[in-house]
Design a protein around this nucleic acid. Structure first.
Lengths: 210, 210, 210, 210
DNA sequence: TATGAATGAGCTTTCATTCAT
DNA sequence: GATGAATGAAAGCTCATTCAT
């Protein structure tokens, strides 16, 4: 799916990229604290280091900021997760490592993941599909890994199961962010990864009917 | 944890209960469509069947409506889930049925679950703990069931695992609501229940190290 | 000037008198603290010991309360001032005593005097004349005394001077109430009375051109 | 006492000064007619020649307008009164002229004086001291004059008397504004000045006990 | 390209007043 | 006569967005 274009008045593309980076950085730190609706465009401009007038040279509506922020966070999570994915591809060990790696990414970006989670619904009907599609891209990473394991004979899963388990992995990772208020009291990140990985793998691997 | 009191000007407690029910019903249907922030107090009053002035006889601030709504939804989900929990208690079959039952409750109340999920963060620092505590109560239901299975020898789990798995069950249930935009394209409710129950039980039951 | 009638729905005149007394008492204590505009009708009802519905059985508009309050305060000040006025009538000593007596009344009722002073302008164009007329009645007391002194030969004043000096006495008395924030730091009531009486009498008595 | 700062969002100080002047002018004319509480912020904005949004770029709360208005009026009265004070300083003639001059200022600014008089109490606990302090500054002008007369031997007054008489002068001047509904029917401004000046001076000058 | 003053629709909340019980 | 739930006009204030400089 093609990116939704956020239209800027400024023509210089380098500048647009630079300013939007500043903007996204400023906005995320504000959204973390107060959420999208409680944050004013003036605050975003200030946190970004420019005036309200300039802000509107790079976006058309306040919602554009949210779109850019969500877009960026998804990319960040996905890109980081995809790093170091090469080794052990198509093996259980490879899957185990991918899960652990992804969980650590969520831990590092937990504020961002939370922001994204709590604010997507504020996106307009037009922007939403683009962002939800990114959610699918995340799942696709794990679908890809699972499918490779199946092809290698390391796992035996139907296509249906592959897709569901991929979502399960993604969601149980996000859960570390959106239930952190309780989970962090009970587990360290390492414990969480250890327990959930065992849980996931057992759920995925065994063939015999329970 | 004691309920946070929402103060009403009206004295007649019966009436307060009745009006608040109307209010909560009206508000949920609006929050579903547009979210808490996009919904005006006037819209809430109208959807509840009374005037803006009357609305404010039963609450103090707009946020009170959100609190009442979240409070209600949690209670609803919990109460319904706790129904029919008696039979097969402490057995794998009992656990299986509880999961299925809970997933069906989420399906029936999917809009409500979504609302709650996306709007809790709009609650004030004062209200939040009360609502998050209800989230814990939900997990406690499954902790209770799992613990009974362990006591009966049907499962072998550490306390740590019990608590984590309980959260996993709760979250994978909610997932049917908050990822319905993709999951419903792929599975019927029955398929979802079937697949996830297998997944969960296998993840929980097996003893041998993977 | 005839009293402006405040219409009551209740017919029993005894009851109207009783309830209005409660109302005026309650209202004054509220107006002292927060002023007329900041006081709600509900607060007045509560402070008066009855319900908002009952309050409106005895008045027509919120402003009626203010009218009744101002009316009452003026009467109170005037009545108390007129007490013990008999002795030494028409002599300088009588005048001196009247002034002192009036100043003491203002001191006792200083909150009330202040309320009246600061809230009259909130009265409607219809009520205002009735209340201002009471202000004239106050001045008339001293005009009467001064005139008696003139008739007795104790003072030599033109009609013009009599009227002005009467107002001066009234205002310098009120001044003890409305400038109390500064005057009380500088003088005791007795000192104030002593100094102002000397000042007033000298200003009134001397004949030779300065 | 330092001025209480009213915070503006607009940075350009020249503009702030200009807009606030327009605002004060507009507000005074409204407060004259209807009083502070009966005047809406929208009316103030309109009378000032700008939109409600713009109004709030120059103040934070409605009360700020009242503060600015009171502040301005006091300054205006004081500044005008202090003009032409040089000649005859420290003589009875100088005092006589100062009184007359001040009374004429009150006459010119009678609406303003009335507004200030009736609305100060609407100021918040925070603003009030700043404004009352200005009232003291007014009295200080006459204290200064009286003290000079005493030093020159033109008058014989204790410090206590100086301070009280200064207040008397100020109040009897304001009286021309707040009792104008009756005084103007009885006297022209010149007559009022003539009569009150005689009264004041006699009250101040004579030494022999009455 | 950058700025920030200006705008006004629209929001939450209050409160005098009414009227069925 | 007494009550208090219901009403809705109207208030203060905010903030996304525009546009002249």
């Amino acid at each position: 799916m093609k990116k939704r274009e956020v239209i800027a008045s400024v023509k210089d593309e380098k500048l647009v990229k630079k300013r939007r980076n500043e903007m996204i950085k400023g906005a995320i730190s504000l959204f973390k604290q107060k959420g999208f609706h409680q944050t004013t465009t003036r605050e975003i401009a200030k946190a970004s280091g420019f005036s309200i007038g300039t802000l509107y040279e790079y976006i058309r509506k306040k919602e554009d900021v949210l779109y850019l922020v969500c877009d960026r966070i998804y990319d960040e999570v996905r890109e980081r997760t995809e790093q170091d994915l090469g080794a052990h591809h198509g093996t259980i060990e490879g899957l185990r490592r991918a899960i652990a790696h992804y969980f650590r990414v969520v831990d590092e970006l937990d504020d961002e993941v939370l922001v994204m989670y709590q604010e997507v619904k504020a996106l307009s009907k037009e922007s939403l599909p683009y962002v939800l599609n990114k959610e699918l891209d995340m799942a696709a990473i794990f679908e890809h890994i699972l499918r490779a394991c199946v092809e290698n004979g390391a796992l035996q899963l139907s296509e249906s199961e592959i897709r569901l388990f991929a979502h399960n992995i993604v969601v149980l990772g996000q859960m570390w962010a959106f239930r952190r208020w309780v989970l962090r009291k009970m587990y360290t990140l390492d414990e969480y990864i250890e327990l959930q990985t065992e849980f996931l793998l057992k759920g995925i691997m065994e063939k015999q009917r329970v």
